[in-house]
Structures are given as C-alpha cells and as structure tokens.
Computed example of a mutant assay.
Amino acid sequence: MYIVEEKIGKIKAILLTAAKTRDVVSYSTIYRIFDGFFEKEAATNHAVIWHTFEHACGELANPKSAIYGALLSKKDTGLPSVGFFDVFRSIRRNEYDTITGGKGIESNRIPLDNMQAIVNVERLRVYEHAMQIDNYL
C-alpha cells in the first residue's frame, strides 16, 4: 500500500503534541493534512491516508509499547473507530479479554463502556510514552 512519506512528519508532530498535552486528535485534523493532495473521497485515497497514519504511528512507537491510534476521537463518541479496537485486541488480547469480560467479543460489538475503558487504558499508555520523547521531531 502506498504511503505519503511527506505527510508522516506532520502526522507524528500532531500526535506527539496531543499526547504530550494529554489531548486527542479529531479525524478531520488528520484529513486536513491531505487537503489538496488528492481527492480524499476516493476509497483508494482514503486507504492511503490511513495507511500513512498507521505508518506514522509505528514510527512513534512499536504498537506493543503504545498504540498512538488511541488518540483519534470521533465527534459523536470521543472514541477512535473500530480499527483501533482491532489492533488493541490483536496486540493486548489478555487486557482486551479482561476489560470485555473474556467473552470473545468482536471489536465491532464491544459495549460503549468497555470501549471507553480500553481507550482510557491505551491513551494513558500513549501519554506516558510521549513524555519519554524529548522533542516534537
């Protein structure tokens, strides 16, 4: 999948600034980084945006240490989309099962209070990780 290399630094700076200030990042903030770069409505370009985002997150931290995608915040819930929960479930299965009651709940069926608990745990991990980084890149 194509990565927009020239956008990586901006994404990392936004994520790191948010993490160091214990804040979140709206989806529209990430989309604005790509304003004028290509037609964002095209499904292929949408995939490129999020592949680039994931690459930037991976440059900030190995997801086993901190999943920077936890900082994303949808307008309606303040939570990231289901993709974050898929990553969390894959990387932190024991923690996922503890929070969700060990019922093998699929990421797209997690109750809202469990989603919030997962996000709270991971955002704290991201905030702590960011404090160990000396500069804003």
Rank of each mutant, 00 (worst) to 15 (best):
M1H: 12
Y2K: 15
I3A: 04
V4H: 01
I8T: 13
I11F: 09
I11Y: 06
I11Q: 03
I11C: 03
I11K: 06
I14D: 00
L15C: 06
L15A: 05
L16A: 04
A18V: 08
R22G: 00
D23Y: 12
D23R: 15
V24G: 01
V25H: 04
V25G: 03
S26W: 00
S28G: 07
T29R: 15
Y31T: 07
R32H: 14
R32K: 15
F34P: 03
F34H: 07
F34Q: 05
G36L: 13
G36T: 11
F37W: 13
F37G: 06
F37V: 15
F38P: 04
E39Q: 06
K40G: 01
K40F: 10
T44R: 14
N45T: 07
H46A: 14
A47M: 09
A47N: 14
V48E: 09
H51V: 07
F53A: 02
F53S: 01
E54P: 00
H55R: 13
H55N: 13
A56S: 10
A56R: 04
C57W: 10
C57I: 10
G58H: 07
E59T: 09
E59F: 08
E59K: 14
A61H: 14
N62S: 09
N62Y: 03
N62L: 08
K64A: 13
S65P: 03
S65Q: 11
A66E: 06
A66R: 06
G69C: 03
A70F: 08
L71W: 04
L71H: 01
L72Q: 14
L72Y: 12
S73N: 08
K74F: 02
D76Y: 02
G78F: 09
L79M: 11
P80I: 02
P80G: 04
S81W: 07
V82I: 12
G83N: 14
G83E: 11
F85R: 04
F85N: 05
F85C: 03
D86P: 00
V87Y: 08
V87F: 05
F88I: 00
F88N: 01
R92L: 08
R92I: 05
R93F: 14
R93A: 06
N94M: 06
Y96A: 00
Y96R: 06
Y96V: 02
D97E: 15
T98P: 00
I99V: 15
I99K: 05
T100Y: 03
G101I: 05
K103F: 12
K103C: 02
E106R: 15
E106A: 13
S107F: 05
R109N: 10
I110H: 03
I110D: 04
P111L: 10
P111W: 11
L112Q: 10
L112N: 09
D113Y: 14
N114T: 04
N114Y: 12
Q116E: 12
A117W: 02
V119Y: 02
N120P: 02
V121E: 12
R123Q: 10
R125P: 00
R125H: 08
R125Q: 12
V126H: 01
E128H: 02
E128S: 00
H129Y: 09
A130W: 13
A130L: 14
M131K: 11
M131H: 04
Q132D: 05
Q132R: 15
Q132G: 11
I133F: 09
Y136M: 13
Y136W: 09
Y136E: 11
